[in-house]
Amino acid sequence: MMVEGRIRKGLGLFIIASHFGAIILVIGLFFAHGFLFEEMTTTLALVVPMFASYTTAIVRYIIKHRHSPESQRTVSMEFAFLAFSLPSIFVLCVFAMIVAKALNLAFQNFDQFKTLLAVLESLFGLYVGYFITELFEQGAKRRASSAKTGS
């Protein structure tokens, strides 16, 4: 059993760090000649919205609940495992693809890279989205309603 508040905090920070990490990685690889300028902007245009929807929900939650204590409710191990593993695999795949493209380790051309990024987003986006929604949007609603009942 794990505490929901701790999972929320860990996952939130992980997603935000991945979001900005991906941006820095792409820009850094552009300066290392791993991407052309057009490739760099296209990659950012693909990667940033992938994370932005999650990051927005997380940041909104953190700002809204900056004064309230975290929930001490426990969640099942399966939930905790999937909540971390799916986003981790997703982030790992995105980072690996970016590096592979920049070092010419995979992909015949930039179009293949773009297509695979889009496929990856479709594969993982739904599942990661479920966890983010449940933890940071539904969770926020539950906290608000329980705070109301408590008061």
Partner: peptide, 12 residues
């Protein structure tokens, strides 16, 4: 483009 020492494939 290409950051490493591996040259890009001809299609790139």
């Amino acid at each position: 483009s290409g950051a490493g020492s591996k040259p890009p494939p001809s299609t790139a």
